[in-house]
């Protein structure tokens, strides 16, 4: 199955997409996603319940977080009560080791996103501060990357032996599914199931960016 592991809704300060509109867009545009994960910035959205949308659109909708560390941004899948009390999700200067340790201890899965990005990507910090031994998986395809960033992510992930996944990092509706992750399993139905599959390593990144249209005109 194919999941977009990195999306933002209006719950994020810079997100402009309503979750239902993501669902409508996926179905209307026949994007081959089986679901997506909402990774809101610096928080975990405990309140929202998307089960009705899951049923209506036959999509898996899971919740996770994107936190900010001294080694760049990190996605945390499988957030639970214990993990929420382990560190302050709103802190923009979290030590990455704190996040990785807390995720491991609480049955979650933490993985740096857009690692090829300047300042907020893992590999830019490797140049200055050396590698982190507990990292094993990174987001190598990110739909918000500028030219060169994903290429750097892929190259550096290979050098360090990291497993790679993909996510659109969409903040507006029409960018969902630009990048995603294909899993060998077709039976992920919960965030615990997702964490298990991520831990197993049976997945890979894919790009689903639409071909550019040549319809622009000068007014």
């Amino acid at each position: 199955m194919i999941l977009d592991l990195h999306t933002h809704s209006i719950k994020s300060d810079d997100g402009r997409a309503k979750v239902e509109n993501y669902c409508k867009w996926i179905r209307k545009k026949e994007i081959p996603l089986d679901g997506f994960v909402l990774t809101e910035h610096r928080q975990y959205d405990s309140e929202s319940d998307y089960r009705a949308l899951e049923d209506e659109y036959n999509l898996l909708i899971l919740k996770a977080s994107e936190v900010e560390t001294d080694y760049g941004h990190v996605l945390v899948f499988g957030v639970n009560e214990d993990l929420l009390h382990s560190f302050d999700f709103a802190n923009i200067r979290l030590p990455i080791q704190t996040v990785l340790n807390a995720a491991k201890e609480n049955g979650a899965f933490a993985a740096p996103c857009h690692p090829g990005r300047k300042r907020v990507g893992l590999f830019s910090h490797y140049e200055l501060s050396g590698p982190i031994s507990d990292v094993h998986t990174v987001e190598v395809f990110n739909g918000g990357s500028i030219p060169g960033e994903d290429e750097l992510s892929v190259k550096q992930a290979a050098i360090h032996g990291y497993k790679g996944f993909g996510g659109s990092d969409s903040h507006v509706v029409s960018r969902i599914g630009y990048c995603a992750t294909t899993f060998e399993s077709d039976s992920i139905t919960t965030v615990e199931g997702l964490v298990g599959e991520l831990q197993s390593g049976s997945f890979g990144p894919i790009s689903l960016r639409p071909e550019p249209k040549n319809t622009t005109t000068e007014p």
Binding site: I146, P147, V172
Partner: peptide
């Protein structure tokens, strides 16, 4: 990206892309 029949409104995503392919503006 959305339509509202009762209000007769639509929502649109907007993007301006720079010459080098970077996203300059989203909205």
């Amino acid at each position: 990206t959305d339509t509202d029949d009762s209000a007769r409104t639509v929502e649109v995503d907007l993007v301006i892309t720079a010459e080098d392919g970077r996203t300059g503006v989203i909205g």
